[in-house]
Design a binder for these strands. Sequence first.
DNA 1: CATGCTCATGTTTACGCAAACAACGGCGAC
DNA 2: GTCGCCGTTGTTTGCGTAAACATGAGCATG
Lengths: 355, 355
Amino acid sequence: MTDGLDDETPALTRTGGAAVRTARRVSMADVARVAGVSAQTVSRVSNGHPGVVEATRSRVLEAMTELGYRPNSAARALKSGSFRTIGVILFSLATTGNVRTLEAIATSAAAEGYAITVIPVAAPTQDGVHGAFTRLGELAVDAIILLMEVHLLDVARVSLPPGVQVVVADSDAGESYAVVDTDQADGTRQAVQHLLDLGHETVHHLAGPALSFAAERRTSAWRATLEEAGREVPPIERGDWSPSSGYEAGLRLARRDDVTAVFAANDQMALGLVRALHDAGRRVPQDVSVVGFDDLPESSEFLPPLTTVHQDFAEVGRRLVEQVLRQVREGVYETGTRLVPTRLVERASTAPPLS
Amino acid sequence: MTDGLDDETPALTRTGGAAVRTARRVSMADVARVAGVSAQTVSRVSNGHPGVVEATRSRVLEAMTELGYRPNSAARALKSGSFRTIGVILFSLATTGNVRTLEAIATSAAAEGYAITVIPVAAPTQDGVHGAFTRLGELAVDAIILLMEVHLLDVARVSLPPGVQVVVADSDAGESYAVVDTDQADGTRQAVQHLLDLGHETVHHLAGPALSFAAERRTSAWRATLEEAGREVPPIERGDWSPSSGYEAGLRLARRDDVTAVFAANDQMALGLVRALHDAGRRVPQDVSVVGFDDLPESSEFLPPLTTVHQDFAEVGRRLVEQVLRQVREGVYETGTRLVPTRLVERASTAPPLS
DNA sequence: CATGCTCATGTTTACGCAAACAACGGCGAC
DNA sequence: GTCGCCGTTGTTTGCGTAAACATGAGCATG
């Protein structure tokens, strides 16, 4: 705080507040007057419609530049019924998956001339979702992408504004909505199989919160893979996705000396897990192998670099936009789940067991 | 959870787009007809205006519910001239700072009844920014928050739609715009001073990219602190914020045996740096102390837990919204920089030098 | 050289909402 | 009892745009 905050020097009100607020926006009529044409001709030029002779067109463009004309999107939306905007509803930007997906959504949408409105839901409760959907009716969006667990969606369903298209990520709502997701089951299978192939007798599991569908999916794929291989299914430890919950679960796992391989439901918990093992004097990967899930940008620089499951969130975002825009343009609701492949990235946190 | 009643919505109408797309949205006129009142009365009820007798009001509300009426935000915006939306322009969601700030912006704005439109800029070049601002004129926003380096703003300034308010984060544009930022200079000073206080002769620096204003600010505060203390200012290493660039710079630093303390410009690079030191056989913190910047959620679980500078991005987001909405409501442009305090979080990556 | 067609441009209208103004009925003041 | 005010509701109007329709000039055809 030592340096120059000339704080609370609020107003260098250039032009003196009053003048600033008036300045009515220039409309098509203004441009038309200056260019000496009708408003309709301005509209045609503005939208690139044919049937305007070159001389007129350039005269209009000149007037637009001179006046600094910008089309009014409210009026345009009122006429056309479309806002060229997609709403994204999500609980949190704390998870890499959501963030990276959102970024891809924004980029893909921009390429199609659509903007993105982010609608955060206060709490991951039915009330929270319900509130978001209620406000949604008044929001200027043509379509909605839901980045959230589906078991909170039942209420939402009813209050969905008619005529607004929806697609869902990260969910099991394939029977009611179009869903795009990463192939988490296959990623989990790859991870567990990798550990078994290294020679581990079985694989322990550090699961995510019980209420999370993604966590549940990873857990059941882990169990299925072990059962298919005829291995014992050990009791699971559970965290809440956070690094510190991984550390605590890691301390509990470290107390059992039969643990030689752990599949963590995400990289953040894997990080805490590795530190707990380290603090307990168990070396990774010599004594215990660890696999994560997500492939954070940091994961390759962890100590040791983490073997993990990579998810292509960019592709998920791209497909979400593609899907929802197809529904918008064709006016058809679709259902079913589209899966984006995942792949195991082998780094230095896994090795054959010592024995 | 178990109440999937489908008799309410026509969601699964896959039988052919025709039926779906017709359903014109219900307007105030429809509600008025059903309730047996005028459209104006519906408007009054909808906006909570006084002067509607209770019997009429409830009749209108009933009709609204029955028809599933939702106000049309385009028409509303056209009348009022306000979209109740704030645009956020940013380059990337890859940095924690941007993400956390965005989340806080979205939450604060929602509390004020404003929505957030995210406008990603394709490339951090003047062309990219210029393009974003050009599209911006057509976007349905009342105000803009810029999350980006200001040296790309010169072009932007001119093409700013008149009447749209702007505030800036993470920038040195205080003379032209209202800026909210964390007090990075003070955070850096705390970090460097902490290392000096531990007894280190001087502090090396792993800087961010030269073009980044944030990186530059941290570098110059680092230099200033050393000079004030009368210490030698060693040559800097430079990365690009990424963990892997931290690793590479770390390998170079590890070759010099006079390095006992490093201030990294962010946590991700610090992570790579620690791994490089580890690979080179230098222990952290016994042989080399490391301080980062950002305080990622993961940083407390690093090996060793990272001493770093915590930035309150939530507060930044909150103040950005507060600031821009004040400007919108009062119709006044303001300038000046508001700083949010930072604080050093001491963990296990720093210790006195061995000697 | 009148007919009919095409192309460029102008005029009308409606989108949904809400300010501004108008109308109407009831009630208190005198 | 009459006047006028207030509280409630209805009517008109216009926001900026663009589709639909109208106009009118130029031009080829018979």
